[in-house]
Structures are given as structure tokens and as C-alpha cells.
């Protein structure tokens, strides 16, 4: 359902959307039932001439059933939702598949710095490619990211990946994603970080392996140096 509103571009986006739909099914049912009951009571028991309200204490067993039966049903729904949530959460945030690539993400007031390993595939070597506000990744590759912040809290948020992780200064937080669909997607800062919080957009470019290698070679070439400037600060219209 979320994919009607924003594209899916990571391996776990579908799981999160599925969980959203599952919860929507359960709570939507209860919401509709409760509202229908509420409004039907309001209509049926509106004041009429000579009609007197009934005296109901809600303490008899037969009356309590109206509360206790839904109560048990809600517990059952909760158990199903909890089980589904825990399994999706474990896959997204708890247990990572082995890394095929690594990338370092540094947030600061008000820009993103992305460090891609160069052709040698390792970070902190001479051929690293550093970009500002522009992250390049390839499809069907499991990335582990090392996320940190220089000054205040930020949050690395990629709606198309259904991914969000706060960046905390003084900590390096590891997470993962596996892009699936080529394209360009928004990166947001989702934690208020000062005056420029709304001016921290970056772009993530998901490309095929061939395109990515081509980009990397060009970027890592000595003349390429620092490939900078994504859309940061430029209005789209």
C-alpha cells in the first residue's frame, strides 16, 4: 500500500510494506467495528419522548462478555502483530546478511558525506571516493553502512528503501541495505538538526553493476578527485 505512494527500491521494503498492510487489516477492522457500533448507538438511543434509559451496571457476567470477548480477540491480534513485527525487525535491524560492499556515511550541519570504497573494495585506502550529498550504489548487492555524525543528531532516511537510522556523534552505527531497483531516490535527514535541517537533501543513485563500475572508475581517476555537489540546496522547481 505504501508503494502506491513511494517506490520500493530495497530488498526489505516489501517486508515492511507487507507488515504495514497486515496491521492496517487488523486495526482497520477494529476501527470500523468500533465506529459503527458507536454511531449506531448514538442513532438508536437518541432521546425520544417518554423513553427512559435502561439501568445497566456492567457488572453482570452477561454484560461483561461485551467487553471481555473483544478483549481476548484484541490480545490475539496483538500477538499476531507482535510476532510479525519481531520477525521483520530482526531481518531489517538485528541480523545482517554478510556484506558485499561497504560505505561510510557522515552527517553534519547541513550536508552528507559519503565515502565509497574504490575499485579495491576496501575503505580507508587511497582510492576511496568521497562525495557530498550524492551516494552511488549498485543493485542486488548487500551494503553495510557505517553511520556517524560530526556535530548533532541527524537521521539517515531513504524512503524508497524504507530505511531510517539516526546518526549519533561519537558513535558509529552499522546497518545494512540491499538496493533492488535502479533509479534516483531522495535521502532525507529525519532528525531536526538546526536551521538547515530542511536543506539537507541528498540523492542516492542505484545503478547496475556495469554503470556503477564505470562511475567509480571515473570518480576514482586522479583528475576526478572529489566528485561533489548533488542537488543540495537547489530547489527542484
Amino acid at each position: 500500500m505504501i508503494d502506491w505512494l513511494t517506490p520500493r527500491a530495497s530488498s526489505f521494503a516489501g517486508d515492511i510494506d507487507w507488515l504495514f498492510a497486515l496491521i492496517l487489516g487488523f486495526v482497520g477492522f477494529w476501527f470500523v467495528v468500533a465506529e459503527v457500533v458507536l454511531f449506531s448507538f448514538l442513532f438508536k438511543f437518541r432521546r425520544r419522548r417518554n423513553a427512559r434509559a435502561r439501568y445497566v451496571t456492567g457488572t453482570l457476567k452477561t454484560e461483561k462478555r461485551w467487553i471481555s470477548v473483544p478483549h481476548v480477540l484484541i490480545i490475539l491480534c496483538d500477538v499476531v502483530i507482535i510476532a510479525a513485527t519481531l520477525s521483520v525487525w530482526a531481518a531489517v535491524k538485528q541480523s545482517f546478511p554478510p556484506a558485499q560492499e561497504k560505505v561510510r556515511i557522515v552527517a553534519q550541519q547541513w550536508a552528507w558525506t559519503f565515502v565509497h570504497p574504490g575499485p579495491d573494495g576496501a575503505l580507508d585506502t587511497a582510492d576511496d571516493v568521497t562525495t557530498i550529498d550524492e551516494l552511488h550504489v549498485k543493485t542486488d548487492t548487500t551494503y553495510h553502512f557505517e553511520l556517524t555524525a560530526k556535530d548533532v543528531l541527524h537521521s539517515f532516511s531513504v524512503p524508497a528503501f524504507r530505511l531510517k537510522q539516526d546518526a549519533v556523534p561519537g558513535r558509529v552505527i552499522t546497518g545494512w541495505f540491499k538496493p533492488t531497483t535502479p533509479g534516483q531516490y531522495d535521502v532525507q535527514c529525519a532528525e531536526i538538526c538546526g536551521i538547515g535541517h530542511g536543506l539537507m537533501p541528498a540523492r542516492i543513485t542505484v545503478e547496475t553493476k556495469e554503470q556503477h563500475d564505470q562511475w567509480l572508475r571515473r570518480a576514482a581517476a586522479p583528475a576526478g578527485g572529489l566528485v561533489a555537489t548533488g542537488p543540495g540546496g537547489t530547489p527542484w522547481r
Binding site: F20, I23, F26, V27, I81, T85, K93, R162, K164, E191
Partner: peptide
């Protein structure tokens, strides 16, 4: 409920 479910909150948080 959507937000209390951690795995959906990953997307909907903030």
C-alpha cells in the same frame, strides 16, 4: 499500533 510496531516505525518514524 503502526508506530509501536518497530519494523513499521523504521519507515514511519519522524
Amino acid at each position: 499500533i503502526f508506530l509501536g510496531a518497530s519494523a513499521v516505525d523504521v519507515y514511519l518514524h519522524d
